[in-house]
């Protein structure tokens, strides 16, 4: 039984270096994918503070700064760097295969299981 799958998103050239782009999946989730130059990272496109679009933030190192109130989110872990003590956002594994960016998304069963465990 698989509980996650890789989704092909887009050509890697569609995300300029040090910028993010949003993608909406059929299950309703919106993910922000970032091109850090040497790798791609992905998190939910929603700042835990007030829902700001993280894809529109300025990238600083491996973090992004939310354009609304400058919360800083670590793109590798989804943790909020600034301010401290805030809840994480979900991060997603990303890989690039033959110039295409893929994101690994948990399937619904896995999400349900996570929900049940919580």
């Amino acid at each position: 039984m698989t509980n996650a799958r890789w989704i092909r998103i887009t050509s890697s050239t569609n995300i300029p270096p040090r910028e993010g782009r949003p993608v909406r999946l059929e299950d309703g989730r919106e993910i922000a994918i970032f091109n850090l130059g040497d790798r791609f990272l992905a998190v939910d496109n929603r700042c835990p503070h007030s829902g700001g679009p993280l894809c529109d933030g300025i990238v600083t190192g491996a973090s992004v700064v939310c354009p609304l109130h400058a919360w800083r989110i670590n793109l590798q872990t989804g943790a909020v760097d600034r301010p401290g003590g805030a809840a994480c956002v979900q991060s997603y594994p990303v890989r690039v295969d033959e110039g295409v960016v893929l994101v690994e998304v948990p399937d619904r069963a896995a999400i349900a299981k996570q929900g049940a465990a919580a």
Binding site: I7, R8, I9, T10, N14, I15, P16, E19, R21, P22, V23, R24, L25, E26, D27, I33, V100, V105, D107, R108
Partner: peptide
Amino acid sequence: VNPTQFIPLDPIDQLNV
């Protein structure tokens, strides 16, 4: 300046769940 400057990405694969 970039083809995706204003538009969100359109995923190649659908989730199909």
